[in-house]
Design a protein around this nucleic acid. Structure first.
Lengths: 220, 220
DNA sequence: TTTTAATTTTAGATTTGTCTAAATTTTATT
DNA sequence: AATAAAATTTAGACAAATCTAAAATTAAAA
């Protein structure tokens, strides 16, 4: 349950990348961490060994549930310390990142929770990013339209904006309902239609009109 | 000006030991750090390399001015964080040491000084130990009697408790005055007399009566 | 003052995290 | 589909911090 600073940095970076990209590549991670692809590969092996990520060589990788949990704890620490630095120690919001990069590796869970309470359980950091709570839940998982979703990010259908019979019938036919996990695989600029992938099913195409009315939120 | 956590731990431990013992031995340091003598020797070489301590093999060692300065900064950080944990985060004074052991290695000097200000420039930590200020000065260098002084600790004469003519005459004769730097080399239990050493001079013996009335404080 | 004991240092290994250069696999291009 | 390019992994090396076991030095005891 306790990881080295370097491992925590990798977990955090992977988490952010997969949040945007769905799957993470060695080069992307190396760039994010300002290190070399070979070093990333070395670390991936260790993280896989510790069952923190899903990884097959040459095929990209992503955190599993354990890995996500660990990454979120690091993000929580980082953002709480940033909040502390700005709100209590009068730092500018633009000068706290580096210091928080160090503070985020302090391991005491009790310290983090006490700090959280001391700060009044803030829910966003000085940059406007949400601070996960003690259980690792981001309070604000705001929903967005499927049409704004970046490619390859897995999300869950959280609401249908236009509840017309025709819309619901269409979705029923394509087997999409509340809670369905999916991701956008392709966007066609010609008509703004999307190709959507649902696990274990062949790709499905949705029109711009439909996509606009399907609201989704972060998975898990 | 920036040292690894391990180096900082060594510097701090040496500082404390030499404060009590004057000169530090490999075994004593290994015991204090819960490590092995061989590991200590390895580290001593590096610290000597960096000109932080005076060390000749097999002969013991002690921090030079640079080393002391560095050690004091670590102690300052440690004690400020302890104060923060107890006074702001409601930790018990007995549960903060381990957490402060981690926090003391955060490197930003600005952070420490801001924290100091936020806490109101406290001068003692929750255990009653003095907190060095931003320049590394311990505000409370309380004076103690020469008769309570541990062996081989270099101190400075800060006051004479009994200002009788006879007493002053005796001290004048032995060439001891305010500001004189000295250390106790031997204690004779028979009559509680002391043998005192002043740099570049032969040892001098003082009776228990005299020693009791010579007050000293930490050197530098 | 020799011998024994304790302390300290060296020699050589190990772990973690990193690197470069070369080899492998995948992806893109002609 | 064959080849070139890009991405990824392996092989081998290195630095920091630590360890064990053996050697060297100093201190203590007979």
């Amino acid at each position: 349950m306790k990881f080295s600073a370097s491992k925590e940095n990798h977990l955090k970076a992977i988490f952010h990348l997969q949040h945007e990209q769905g799957i993470v590549t060695t080069n992307a991670l190396a760039a994010a961490l300002q290190t070399r692809p070979a070093s990333v590969t070395d670390m991936l092996k260790k993280l896989k060994e510790q069952k923190l990520l899903i990884y097959e060589r040459y095929k990209g990788f992503r955190l599993n549930n354990e890995g996500k949990k660990a990454a979120i704890q690091v993000i929580r620490k980082h953002r709480l310390w940033e909040y502390f630095l700005v709100k209590k120690l009068q730092f500018g919001w633009d000068e706290v990142h580096e210091i928080a990069e160090e503070l985020e590796h302090i391991s005491s869970k009790k310290l983090v929770d006490r700090l959280d309470a001391f700060l009044g359980f803030p829910d966003t950091d000085p940059h406007g990013d949400p601070i996960p709570d003690s259980q690792g839940r981001f309070l604000q998982r705001r929903q967005i339209s499927l049409s704004e979703l970046p490619l390859n990010k897995v999300v869950q259908v959280s609401a249908i904006a236009s509840q017309t019979t025709e819309m619901l019938e269409l979705l029923q036919h394509k087997n999409i309902r509340l809670g369905t996990r999916l991701e956008v695989r392709k966007k066609f600029p010609f008509d703004n239609s999307l190709e959507v992938k649902i696990r274990n099913r062949p790709p499905v195409t949705l029109s711009a009109q439909v996509a606009k009315n399907v609201l989704v939120k972060d998975d898990e």
